[in-house]
């Protein structure tokens, strides 16, 4: 089973599903605009035509930022606005993730929207359940880390040196990354199981447990993450190296491109998992034959 070819298959589907991904990206942008609209209004009111605004365009400027935060009242007034939008976006993406389950593998361009919407409503509850379970698992990891760090000691006055604590925190961060990575694989197995068997919670967990430590899936997940990271880093460096010497808008465009990539990644990831599962199944059937 070739990871690369599985991945390739997943990418090929982009030719069909890109309008959906573009739509999801568009909604993300919309949320971005909605979020900053009150900020924009208060910024226009406080900075308006002040020359001070120029300082905002000259890289990080502590005085400019703190002055604006103080005079606009900061983000404190926006916190409920931010939480509300994030919650809405969260629910919308439960729907899109459920929708992805209907457009995995090759499909005709004509039926794609239909299938996306149908799967979105059909699997909405399943995805919501899986997501809460993922959050629960991650919280368990966080709790474990917290308890262990606490047990090892957090009071600086009781330490000979802070080196042990620094090492422990680094280990905790690495552990949380790995834990989050494994949860991602587990979650994707659950999603694929839902397509085959509907939402049967315990059997879904059982099946996911059976497969999720398979080296192929881990390798594929790693490959997925690595490709995304590579692209994001590339964009970041491109963005920072361009500096001020580019046409207005280019920097913003690069920022948006990285958001779009993240949306694409979400689809490719579940799609490649699906392709791997399909090819594994056919391989198993061939072996049985």
């Amino acid at each position: 089973m070739n990871i690369i070819s599985t991945y390739n298959n997943a990418i090929k589907n982009l030719a069909t599903v890109w309008p959906i991904l573009a739509f999801i990206f568009f909604v993300n942008c919309l949320f971005g605009y909605v979020f900053i609209s009150p900020l924009k209004a208060s910024l226009d009111e406080t900075i308006g035509k002040s020359l001070f605004a120029e300082r905002l365009g000259q890289g990080f400027d502590y005085t400019a930022l703190t002055e604006i935060l103080r005079e606009t009242g900061g983000l404190s007034g926006l916190s409920s606005w931010l939480i509300g939008l994030a919650l809405l976006y969260f629910l919308w993406n439960i729907f899109t993730s459920a929708g992805f389950l209907g457009i995995l593998g090759p499909h005709s361009k004509l039926s794609i929207w239909n299938k996306f919407y149908q799967a979105g409503s059909k699997y909405f509850l399943s995805i919501l359940t899986i997501t809460f379970f993922s959050i629960f698992l991650f919280s368990l990891g966080l709790l474990a880390v917290g308890v262990i760090l606490q047990a090892l000691g957090l009071n600086l006055l009781q330490m000979e040196t802070e080196l042990a604590l620094i090492r422990n925190i680094k280990l905790a961060v690495v552990f949380l990354f790995v834990w989050r990575f494994l949860i991602g694989i587990f979650r994707d197995h659950c999603k694929l199981d839902v397509i085959d068997n509907g939402l049967a919670f315990w059997s879904m967990i059982k099946n996911a447990c059976k497969h999720f430590l398979s080296s192929h899936y881990i390798l594929l997940a790693f490959f997925n993450v690595a490709i995304l990271a590579l692209f994001l880093i590339l964009l970041f460096f491109l963005k920072s190296s361009l500096g001020e010497f580019v046409l207005f808008g280019t920097i913003g465009l690069l920022g948006q491109l990285s958001i779009f990539l993240r949306v694409v990644y979400r689809y490719i990831r579940i799609n490649s998992f699906h392709a791997l599962k399909q090819s594994k199944l056919s391989h198993d059937i061939e072996n049985e034959d």
């Binding site: 949320f31 971005g32 000259q58």
Partner: peptide, 21 residues
């Protein structure tokens, strides 16, 4: 109003979009 404010806002917007993702 200046271009700088727009750039600043677009940075914040982009940051928020990343947070959402």
């Amino acid at each position: 109003k200046s271009k700088a404010t727009s750039t600043f806002l677009s940075e914040i917007r982009s940051g928020f979009q990343h947070v959402l993702e």
